[in-house]
Simulated assay, not measured.
Amino acid sequence: MTVRVGRKRTIVIPKKIADMLGIEEGSRVMLVISGNKLEVIPLPDAITLSLKGKKVARVTLRELEEESMREQKRYNGVFSS
């Protein structure tokens, strides 16, 4: 697909391609120069990663809450005088 470089060197990603890559308004992308080519790489946000990303560990809600309580106690201990 061919697109035209617009004012201030902007490039509009066609809807069909944006939809295929999951790019929406406000999405972040990384631009990479590879030789004489420009790659546009979508960067998923934290919510997308948590819902669709590869799982690398399993944490139970209880473990998460316990860790949160430990960190809060540590944080409060640092700032309480």
Results as ranks from 00 to 15, higher is better:
15 K>Q: 03
63 E>M: 09
56 V>A: 00
14 P>Y: 02
66 E>P: 09
69 M>L: 11
62 R>I: 07
44 P>C: 08
72 Q>Y: 14
10 T>Y: 08
55 K>L: 03
20 M>E: 01
15 K>W: 02
24 E>H: 15
39 E>Y: 12
42 P>D: 09
69 M>N: 05
3 V>M: 04
46 A>S: 13
45 D>Q: 02
76 N>D: 00
2 T>E: 10
43 L>T: 04
20 M>A: 09
23 I>L: 01
62 R>Y: 02
62 R>H: 02
42 P>I: 06
19 D>N: 12
20 M>Q: 05
17 I>C: 07
14 P>Q: 11
57 A>V: 10
36 N>C: 11
52 K>Y: 01
7 R>Y: 12
76 N>G: 00
26 G>D: 03
24 E>Q: 15
61 L>Y: 03
58 R>M: 03
1 M>Y: 05
39 E>M: 14
42 P>N: 07
56 V>I: 05
43 L>F: 12
16 K>G: 10
81 S>L: 14
22 G>D: 10
15 K>H: 05
52 K>R: 05
62 R>F: 05
11 I>V: 12
41 I>L: 13
54 K>C: 11
79 F>E: 10
71 E>W: 06
59 V>A: 07
20 M>H: 15
54 K>I: 05
57 A>Y: 11
79 F>H: 00
38 L>Y: 14
66 E>L: 04
14 P>L: 09
71 E>G: 02
49 L>G: 10
55 K>A: 14
9 R>Y: 12
61 L>D: 13
66 E>N: 07
73 K>M: 09
17 I>V: 06
72 Q>S: 09
37 K>Q: 10
67 E>D: 04
45 D>T: 12
12 V>H: 14
36 N>V: 09
11 I>N: 06
69 M>G: 13
53 G>V: 03
59 V>I: 09
67 E>K: 15
40 V>R: 08
49 L>H: 09
25 E>A: 07
64 L>P: 01
29 V>S: 00
47 I>S: 01
22 G>K: 13
50 S>L: 08
22 G>L: 08
51 L>G: 02
73 K>W: 09
35 G>M: 08
4 R>N: 03
81 S>V: 14
5 V>Q: 01
6 G>Q: 02
79 F>V: 08
37 K>D: 03
27 S>W: 00
11 I>Y: 04
58 R>D: 07
18 A>E: 13
58 R>A: 02
4 R>L: 09
49 L>V: 13
26 G>L: 02
1 M>A: 03
59 V>D: 04
43 L>R: 11
61 L>V: 10
58 R>Y: 10
31 L>Y: 00
39 E>S: 07
31 L>E: 08
15 K>R: 14
8 K>T: 05
16 K>T: 06
73 K>I: 00
